[in-house]
């Protein structure tokens, strides 16, 4: 393999981790603590797999994963913003639901897949992985990341998202509809998470019960390690995608244990949180002030 193909091999993993952590970071900027990420990611993979098989097109799978993720993201946002409930509990319950639904949907689709294979049809559930497609798997996510960054810092909507994350009560008094802004952030963030899960399916190119479990948390760690900054996330996601793609090559070449390699993003995430909170980087990269806080006044219209 030449250098170019070494780099291109990283593309599917990069697409999976970058889009997912980009969406996660943007959504959390709006102040909702998102612990549903792993469950929604796993569900996205299963839905992408199932929809591709039923429709014989991986693009339908991609769209279905995006839609499913957005539905669950908006559910989480609605529940945590409208009612005085714990973000953590709501997120974890959606995580469990995601794991469960993923298994049910995926197993049913795999049975169909096996029947189709017997009758000679091989439905395609992975996105194309030609060299050009792989270049696009780098280019499109990074392009989306730049757009999202511009949206975050240059537009009114971006300012509103940051405002409801820092102090939703102050934002309300400035005339911002917190629920609406958070729902928009959820729609954008979760569509990226859904696309990321379809990328993951393309990367691993197989589905069994439990595929993708823990990888949502890796994306979470990747996002935290970059302080939820869309452009810094390119670096952390890229570094981890390389590590994940070449985990076993690295083991053979440098005797780097895969366990240590898998641990790295999590340790880096904690290290980054410590750095961001104890140095002047705090101004730029600290978590939103109201992340995970209940947004509630004495009474309110449902």
């Amino acid at each position: 393999m030449d250098a170019a193909s070494y780099i291109l091999s990283v593309a599917p993993a990069f697409m999976a981790y970058y889009l997912t952590s980009l969406g996660q970071g943007f959504f959390e900027k709006s102040g909702v603590l998102n612990l549903s990420i792993d469950g929604v990611f796993v569900l996205g993979i299963a839905v992408a797999y199932a929809a591709s098989i039923y429709s014989c097109s991986p693009w339908v799978g991609l769209a279905a994963a995006v839609l499913t993720a957005v539905v669950f993201g908006m559910l989480l946002t609605y529940v945590t913003t409208k009612f005085p409930v714990s973000h953590g509990a709501a997120g974890l319950s959606i995580m469990f639901l995601g794991y469960g639904l993923a298994g049910l949907v995926g197993v049913a689709a795999r049975n169909t897949y096996n029947e189709m294979v017997v009758s000679g049809i091989y439905p395609q559930f992975t996105l194309p992985v030609t060299p050009i497609a792989k270049v696009l798997m780098f280019a499109i996510p990074v392009g989306l990341g730049i757009l999202l960054y511009l949206l975050e810092v240059r537009t009114k909507l971006g300012a509103a998202v940051r405002a409801v994350g820092e102090d939703p009560h102050a934002a309300t008094s400035l005339g911002i509809d917190v629920l609406r802004v958070r729902l928009i952030a959820a729609a954008l963030g979760y569509s990226l998470i859904g696309a990321g899960s379809a990328g993951f399916l393309t990367w691993v190119a197989t589905w069994s019960e439990g595929t993708g479990i823990n990888h949502g948390w890796i994306a979470y760690a990747v996002s935290l390690a970059a302080g939820r900054h869309p452009l810094l996330t390119v670096g952390t996601a890229g570094a981890f995608a390389i590590l994940a793609t070449y985990m076993y090559t690295l083991q053979a070449a440098y005797n780097l244990s895969p366990e240590i390699a898998k641990m790295i993003p999590f340790i880096v995430a904690i290290g980054a949180m410590v750095t961001f909170m104890s140095t002047p980087l705090r101004k730029k990269l600290a978590p939103p002030q109201s992340l995970g806080r209940r947004f509630f006044k004495e009474e309110r219209t449902v």
């Binding site: 529940v79 009612f83 319950s93 959606i94 469990f96 794991y99 469960g100 049910l104």
Partner: peptide, 20 residues
């Protein structure tokens, strides 16, 4: 009757209902 996932569905549905 179902895959291992039924447990997760039970736990997720009860927890979400309860949270609300």
């Amino acid at each position: 009757i179902s895959s291992a996932s039924a447990t997760y569905v039970f736990i997720g549905a009860v927890l979400l209902t309860f949270t609300v």
